[in-house]
Amino acid sequence: MVQVMERTRERAGLKQTAAPAVPDVRPLVYDTKLLNLWYGNHHALKNIDLPIRENEVTAIIGPSGCGKSTYIKTLNRMVELVDDVRTSGEILYRSRNIFDRNYPVEELRTRVGMVFQKPNPFPKSIYDNVAYGPRIHGIRNRQILDEIVEKSLRGAAIWDEVKDRLNTNAYSLSGGQQQRICIARALAIEPDVILMDEPTSALDPISTLKVEELVQELREDYSIVIVTHNMQQAARISDRTAFFLSGEVVEFDETDKMFSNPEHKRTEDYISGRFG
C-alpha cells in the first residue's frame, strides 16, 4: 500500500515538499473545538477537533456523506446558506471564534478564500471575474485593479494562457482553465487561507495535475484546506490528512504517517480501498 502511494507520488512528478520534518510548531490558523453540526435532525458533524496550521496543506478525505464538505463549508460559514443549520462548539480562526455574534461573516470570508467543486466563474469577462472581489471591497482604481488581476492570474498559473483575451467571457475557457480562473479570483483579495472543496473532481487528469501543482506552489504563501475524494491526491499534495467517517474525525496525522502506518483499522480499510 505504502509503496503504491510513493510510486503514485513519483509518477505525478511532484516534488516532495511535504516534509515529515514539519513539526507542530507552525502557528495555528484554525482550531476547531468540539464542533457539532445538525441539518434539521440530521447530526452531520460530531465532536470535531482539528487544528489547521499556517503554510500547510491539510487534506480532508473520507467516503461521500462523511461530512467532509460540510466541515470545509463551516470554516467560512458558507454552510449557513442552507436553511435549518445548527452548530455547537467553536471554530477559532486566528484565535477568534467565527460563530461569535460580533464576527461579521463577510470579514471572515474576505480572509478565507474558497474554491468550489464545480468551476463556477461568473458569466463575465476573465478580467471582471478576477476583479470581482477587490471591487466589492471598494477598490475601484483601474491601475491597482490591473495589477491585482495580473498578479492573481500569475499566481494561479494561468496568466500566459489568457493574458491576450482578458475581456473574453470566462465561459469560453475549458473546465480546467475555468477552475484556475476561480482560484485566481480567490487570490485577488489576498486571503490568508484557501478552502478547496474537491476542486479537481470535475476536471480531466491533465487539468487536475495542473491544479495540484498549483496547490503546491500556493502553500508558500497560503494555508490550504482541501477536501478530496481521491486518496492519491491527498497523499500527493498534503502535509496533514484528516480522515472523516460518518461525521467524525477517525484519524488526523501527518500525511506520510497516515498513509504508511495508519493507527486505526477503519483508516487502513478506507485507504486500502476496502470501502468508500
Binding site: M78, L81, F122, I136
Partner: peptide
C-alpha cells in the same frame, strides 16, 4: 445557479452586493 451565489458569498460579498452584481445581471 446557486454556485454563482456561493462564489460571490465566498469572496466576502454581502447579500445585497451578490444580488446586484451576480443574481440580477444573470
Amino acid at each position: 445557479p446557486r454556485e454563482l451565489r456561493e462564489a460571490s458569498y465566498g469572496m466576502g460579498a454581502t447579500k445585497w452586493q451578490t444580488i446586484i452584481r451576480v443574481v440580477l445581471p444573470g
